[in-house]
Amino acid sequence: MHPVERNGDVVHIRQAIRALAQEGGLSLVDQTKMITAASELARNTLIYGGGGVVRAGAVAKDDRRGVGAVFEDSGPGIADVAQAMTDGWTSGTGMGLGLSGSRRLVDEFDLRTTPGEGTTVTIIKWAR
């Protein structure tokens, strides 16, 4: 479990995901995609969620293996998920491509959020 409380933590998470992706046998392209998605989501946890935790590890389903990560915060939550998932929409000063872009970068993307309670995003990238 990795805390996400400051900018440096995002770098640590990227490194942890890189190690897992290499061990998990992901191709270089898939490693880079997974690391980048993790970077986006961890930064959202930090900036919008007010900090939180990331859990990451090897995952397996049937005969597939991969790397999974869960980004969890107890921040304000997202009132309008469809809007947040729209390319280019940001409530801050970002590019508004973190959520929508990460969904395209990974194989499984699950976003759960309750306004006032927090947000949890789960992603998986399978080895091919």
Partner: peptide, 13 residues
């Protein structure tokens, strides 16, 4: 690099 190019495209940048 090719992997960064593909990632940038997928992100939509």
């Amino acid at each position: 690099s090719p992997q960064i190019a593909q990632t940038i495209v997928a992100l939509g940048i």
